[in-house]
Design a protein around this nucleic acid. Structure first.
Lengths: 160, 160
DNA sequence: CTACCATTGTTATCATTCATATTCACTTGC
DNA sequence: GCAAGTGAATATGAATGATAACAATGGTAG
């Protein structure tokens, strides 16, 4: 019989919330840590008027000039319809352009403008700096171990 | 000059989407890995008719009998109004009860019913099993390292 | 005791993110 | 040429998260 290490103190006033059971799960730690990272990222991107999604899209477009929207949606793990508004916003701000593909007039080739590339440079630099602060106390070997483990989890069988 | 290691192949057709820039960020790895974990968790909880939020709430209530809603909201890092519907659902399904606190008639003491405790046992066991599969190739020492690192990130200064 | 303020839970409302279904334009395979 | 498939857009809905405002109650200063 597996008795959990949690003793429900009968009708006692709760002074401190215990999450011992959830702390047994890697996913719980991941969610809590990621929340901190995400909150920091949102703050970091605010001066550039970028959200996490618009930032990710911009970076991928700069890194992959000429990519199609469906490719970008795949890369971002979101559905095509949801990408449209993101691309709309980036295009309206003239950070990227939708260029018709001559060989397939259904598709758009996504490319960053000069302004888009410049914003990319600044935003990536800012995020890099902020993340360095967040990971301050963690040495390089540990970081490498964590990244390797996260990659392995990401590549786990039951993906999509 | 910091030239990124990304060469924008002029007007070339993109065959494979590169995320080299994003791969420099720990947060990106965390998000991708967590997506996998979360998708698996949702699937795991589906047979029990639990979502991530109702599951988390149930676990915390079982572990902390008598806790208040505001304490639970704090523990779950969500706002009080958003917790109401979650508690409503758990109460409607008779997994928990809202018990009036005699000493403070504004507050409810949250307690799991027998059915709630039983569902808790089954759900926690299922999640434990599924997570074990997900972390299969990762040895204990690595897991401990990752958890320690995630905890450190979570406790980072700029929290809330 | 009264007046004021803080807290608990609730309702209403809104923004964001993500999914699905449908439609339109276009391409491709037969 | 036509049927089927693909790229993108639109409309819509579900889930999660936040804020504002409120009623009821509790605590405290005067």
């Amino acid at each position: 019989m597996k008795k959990p290490a949690v003793k429900p103190a009968e009708a006692t006033v709760v002074t401190h919330v215990s999450d011992v059971t959830l702390r047994n799960f890697m996913g719980y730690h991941m969610k809590r840590a990621f929340n901190v990272v995400q909150t920091d990222l949102v703050q970091t991107l605010k001066p550039f008027d970028l959200r996490m999604l618009t930032y990710t899209a911009l970076v991928l477009i700069v890194d992959n000039p000429g990519m199609r929207q469906s490719q970008l949606a795949d890369g971002m793990d979101i559905e095509r319809p949801n990408l449209v508004v993101i691309i709309d916003e980036l295009e309206r701000r003239e950070l990227i352009i939708r260029e018709r593909v001559p060989t397939d007039r259904r598709a758009y080739a996504l490319k960053a403008t000069l302004a888009g590339q410049q914003l990319y440079e600044k935003a990536v630099a800012a995020v890099t700096k902020h993340e360095a602060l967040l990971l301050d106390g963690i040495d390089d070997a540990t970081r490498a171990t964590v990244i390797a483990a996260l990659k392995q989890i990401e590549k786990s069988p039951r993906k999509g």
